[in-house]
C-alpha cells in the first residue's frame, strides 16, 4: 500500500513537473504576417521580419521558447484577450484607444517622418527658412499634410494621390523635396537611381508614442519581464545588429516631436 502510494505520488509529481517545465519554457507570440518588412510570411510559409527577430531576441534574453502564429489584423486584439497567444509583436502603434483593451511595453521602435531632397540642392538641413520657395510633395490626406501647412507655409506643397507618384516626381526633378515616413522613404531610397538623400532630422507627429508589444491588461508580470529583456537587448547591441539587417537608420532613439523641432 505504501509503495503504491509512493508510486502514485511520484507519477503525479512527474506529470506536474512536466507541465510546469513546458509552460515556463514556451510562450506564444502573435503577429499579423502581412506587414513586410516588419512581419510577413515568406514563400515557404515561415513567419519572418524585424518584429520576429526582435521577439526572438527578447525570448532568448528571457530564456524561454517562443512560438509564433499569425492573426488577422482586425481581430488581433480580441485574439490576444481570448488567450490565443500570450503577447503580440506586430508593429502596433501605441494609442490611448488601444490602451483601453490591452497594455503596451515600452516603445520598441519609432516610425518617424523625414524629408527626402534632391542631392543637387545640397540642402544639409530642412528648416522652414531653408525650404522657403522650394516645392515639397507628399501624399494627399497623409499626416504630413498638416505638418507642411503648419510649419512650412512658405514652401510650395504638391499633393499626390499615392506616395509612389510623388517619388517619381522627386526623381524627375519636378519636386525639390518629399516628406514621408522614414521607412517607406528609406526603402525607396535604397532602390532609387541615387538622385536623392535624407535631409534634416527625423521627427514624430505630436501625440504619437511609437510601436509597442501588446499584452493582456492583467499580465503585468510578463510585461515587466519583456520590458526588462527589451532594455537589455537595446543596451547590449543585439537590437542594433537586428536593426542594421533591415534599416540603414536609427529607429530606436526617440526622435523629437515636430512641434519641438520647428516651433520658433
Amino acid at each position: 500500500m505504501k509503495t503504491l502510494f509512493k508510486m502514485a505520488a511520484a507519477a503525479t509529481g512527474l506529470v506536474v513537473a512536466g507541465l510546469a517545465s513546458a509552460s515556463a519554457e514556451t510562450l506564444q507570440i502573435g503577429t499579423e504576417g502581412a506587414y513586410a518588412p516588419f512581419n510577413y510570411v515568406s514563400e515557404n510559409g515561415e513567419i519572418k521580419g524585424f518584429d520576429i527577430d526582435i521577439g526572438n531576441a527578447i525570448c532568448a534574453e528571457m530564456k524561454v521558447e517562443c512560438e509564433w502564429s499569425v492573426h488577422d489584423w482586425g481581430g488581433i486584439i480580441p485574439a490576444l484577450n481570448a488567450h490565443k497567444f500570450d503577447f503580440m509583436v506586430a508593429s502596433m502603434a501605441i494609442t490611448e484607444a488601444r490602451m483601453e483593451n490591452v497594455s503596451f511595453s515600452d516603445p520598441y521602435y519609432y516610425n518617424a517622418m523625414r524629408f527626402l531632397a534632391v542631392k543637387e540642392l545640397a540642402l544639409e538641413e530642412a528648416t522652414p527658412e531653408r525650404l522657403k520657395g522650394l516645392v515639397v510633395g507628399t501624399q494627399q490626406g497623409a499626416v504630413s499634410v498638416p505638418v507642411l501647412d503648419a510649419y512650412f507655409p512658405d514652401s510650395e506643397h504638391k499633393l499626390y494621390p499615392k506616395m509612389t507618384e510623388a517619388l517619381m516626381d522627386l526623381e524627375s526633378g519636378r519636386l525639390d523635396l518629399a516628406l514621408f515616413s522614414q521607412f517607406t522613404a528609406g526603402e525607396w531610397l535604397a532602390g532609387s537611381s541615387g538622385c536623392c538623400e535624407f535631409v534634416g532630422e527625423s521627427f514624430l507627429m505630436d501625440g504619437t508614442i511609437g510601436a509597442g508589444i501588446a499584452f493582456r491588461k492583467q499580465d503585468d508580470e510578463l510585461r515587466n519581464r519583456v520590458n526588462a529583456a527589451l532594455k537589455t537587448i537595446m543596451d547590449n547591441g543585439t537590437y542594433e545588429t537586428i536593426r542594421a539587417e533591415y534599416f540603414d537608420f536609427d529607429i530606436m532613439t526617440k526622435p523629437p516631436y515636430v512641434s519641438e523641432l520647428f516651433d520658433k
Binding site: G137, Q140, G141, K158, L159, P161, E165, D169
Partner: peptide, 14 residues
C-alpha cells in the same frame, strides 16, 4: 487631381 492640379473635385477631396 492625379497629376497634382487641384480643380473643384481635387479641392473637394482635400
Amino acid at each position: 487631381a492625379i497629376i497634382t492640379v487641384f480643380d473643384l473635385m481635387g479641392e473637394a477631396r482635400t
